[in-house]
Design a protein around this nucleic acid. Structure first.
Lengths: 214, 214
DNA sequence: GGCAAAGTTTCGGGTTGCCTAAATAATCTG
DNA sequence: CAGATTATTTAGGCAACCCGAAACTTTGCC
């Protein structure tokens, strides 16, 4: 099968990421926005990816990955997350600094090097943001999680994951000492309490980025 | 100044590499061969690089780097060699396996990550093949060296560098226990003796790849 | 000095991936 | 349910890189 280009990998990865924590399939408009490109460019690439059997698409409909497409997508996600983990664990990056670097390297690293890094790190299962790292065969664990924005007052749980989309949020949370593994309780719709510590007010942006155990 | 594309970086790097151990400037034909592309493609890119002030070129003449071009070239070479060193020292690669991986990554790694790797490795001065790693400011040490093919019988010296162009040669030499730092004597035009060990016959290919102290 | 071989450039083409503007389809709303 | 809004697609272009074929220099050699 034809090798995927960096651009195609970005499309597949973004389509995959959209359904990783929420069920609705992605639309061309949203995909264009996420990729920072014009909708017409998406139409064009979508045609190629559909012709290559990597996505399913009926005109004016949503975009879904085929099995093969999902395999390619998880491979990119695996590369991205292992690179992020490596940057944090070995090279002194903080969790808000790794995204852009991984975004580029995920398209350049060979399988050989990727597995060497994974071995070097002891085959980590999650990246610094709590996102699960797909296995080399594309299989991924599934976790039940609740978005902080959807959690009722009084809900107690462990932080599973923080979206890495906005570095500012990551810095904010790091300053508050909150990250994957933190045990917290939702005081009200805008306040979080660290179990062994103090309360922290949080914004809607933060509420839409933090995921807790159910 | 305009950022350099991966393709342009490859041109600059190859032009630079050609004069690193020998004085003659490179010609378009040789450059095309080294890059594995058609001569007409070189003409085209050369125009762009000349327009960008990175190389000097008169029609039908040789190609030479401007100061700015040399700066860009050494930056790529620095990335390439630090990556090679990192792959060997940290990730279990052997010196004949690192070239292709570095060839790709040299275009993707950020300055931030590069300096983190350099620090992590203790700022090495040479890569696994004995090639000197340019400093971050582009400055490079200069070393007097003699090509094995040009060394007279009886010449004694230390192996400074082995060209990384042919992995088979690197494997051959590794098997013989010869590498940068080995002290050797040229017995005759086809035999080398390790100072503390046995004699090894060598081919013309090997003679054109090994450099000794003068 | 002249002519063939070798090197270089020009020219017309092709691919990928992006763009804007305009056309068309789907969806929302009064 | 019809017009208005929004989403999607089509059409035409552009920049980066590459190609092969043909034209044009330079070089090497008798």
């Amino acid at each position: 099968m034809k090798p995927t280009t960096p651009a195609a990998e970005d499309y597949l990865k973004t389509i995959y990421a959209h359904t990783e924590w929420q069920p609705e399939p992605i639309t061309p408009k949203v995909l264009a926005t996420r990729l920072g490109i014009a909708p017409s460019s998406v139409t064009e690439m979508v045609k190629k990816l559909a012709a290559a059997g990597l996505i399913a698409h009926v005109p004016y409909g949503p975009l879904t990955l085929t099995d093969e497409g999902r395999l390619r997508a998880t491979a990119v996600v695996r590369r991205h997350r292992l690179i992020e983990t490596w940057l944090v664990r070995e090279l002194g990056y903080t969790w808000d600094e790794v995204h852009d670097e991984a975004e580029v390297l995920e398209h350049s690293i060979s399988d050989r090097l990727l597995e060497a890094i994974s071995t070097h790190l002891g085959h980590p299962r999650a990246d610094p943001h709590g996102d699960l790292i797909p296995a080399a065969d594309g299989s991924t664990a599934r976790v039940r999680a609740v978005l902080l924005a959807d959690a009722p007052a009084g809900h107690s749980g462990t932080v599973l994951r923080v979206s890495d989309r906005d570095p500012a949020i990551l810095r904010l949370l790091a300053d508050a000492g909150i990250g994957p593994g933190s045990n917290v309780t939702v005081v009200d719709s805008a306040t979080l309490r660290l179990d062994a510590g103090q309360a922290h007010p949080f914004s809607a942006d933060v509420a839409a980025a933090v995921w807790l155990t159910g």
